[in-house]
């Protein structure tokens, strides 16, 4: 079974194509302007600065190691936003790839996720540089290997929403505005800025309804608190994400196949 898969990958150029399209996508996003990659790093830093002033300096929320606490959550949150909001028009902007050939559209989605993963990799790297060298009294333990299933969960979730939204875009052009509102609301009802206890007490059960919550909560468990993930949340999150991915794939088959003639 595995050898068949291996031969299939080696025999075709699918992996190479995935990497080529991801690199080009990444380049288009970050190397086109003069400051280049710097922008990718400035964005989370500026956000941390703003929330630090608001929550620690003015409101005195009193969360220990607040910068690290925020940093890891924002990096994951931004990946989700970029992969969902940023890809709504993907079938329109990447039309040149499928309009003249019988290329499978799912490859376009995977390459964009791939390019975002390159960005996520640099952001996580930057987080660990801060965490290990600047943050005082914190250390990294073996528990960070659990970051792998957590990021996998994030990727499945993002791909799912990317598919759902971009295919709905074919029949509803204002989905972008609607999603912008949902994302805006989502940011404030996710456990990004608050103490987890406060969040759970105020909105019980929400960490199960909001699909990004389990990812953020567990990422903090394994990175900041040197703890194993909350297993219930982790498995629930994976099932939840796969559910969205299946809806997305269904929509790609139903609506996406008509993208060439409708867009």
């Amino acid at each position: 079974m595995i050898s068949i898969l291996k031969n299939w990958v080696r025999g075709s150029n699918k992996l190479e194509r995935f990497w080529l399209l991801s690199k080009i996508e990444y380049k288009l996003r970050y190397y086109e302007n003069k400051l280049g990659l710097v922008w990718a790093l400035i964005k989370p830093l500026s956000e941390i600065f703003i929330y630090y002033i608001a929550f620690e300096v003015i409101m005195k929320a009193g969360i220990p190691h607040f910068v690290s606490y925020l940093f890891i959550a924002l990096v994951l949150w931004n990946f989700f936003v970029e992969s969902s909001l940023g890809t709504i028009q993907i079938l329109a902007t990447k039309k040149y790839l499928y309009e003249y050939t019988n290329m499978n559209k799912i490859e376009i989605y995977l390459s964009v996720i791939g390019s975002n993963l390159i960005g996520l990799f640099f952001n996580i790297l930057m987080f660990f540089v801060y965490y290990i060298f600047i943050e005082k009294g914190m250390y990294v333990s073996w528990h960070i290997i659990f970051l792998i299933p957590i990021v996998l969960n994030l990727v499945i979730l993002s791909l799912g929403f990317s598919l759902i939204l971009s295919n709905l875009y074919i029949i509803a052009k204002d989905i972008q505005q609607i999603w912008l509102i949902i994302i805006g609301l989502g940011f404030w009802i996710s456990p990004i800025l608050y103490k987890l206890d406060t969040f759970r007490a105020a909105l019980p059960g929400l960490e199960y309804i909001n699909p990004i919550s389990n990812i953020i909560i567990n990422a903090r468990n394994v990175v900041l608190y040197n703890h194993v993930p909350e297993w219930g949340l982790l498995f629930w999150g994976l099932i939840y994400s796969v559910f969205f991915l299946l809806i997305g794939l269904y929509l790609l088959n139903r609506l996406g196949s008509k993208a060439a003639e409708k867009l």
Partner: peptide, 15 residues
């Protein structure tokens, strides 16, 4: 240059 590589790859060629 990039278009040549992208198109070639989409058409099934290896790098």
């Amino acid at each position: 240059r990039e278009n040549i590589y992208v198109s070639g790859s989409v058409l099934g060629l290896k790098i």
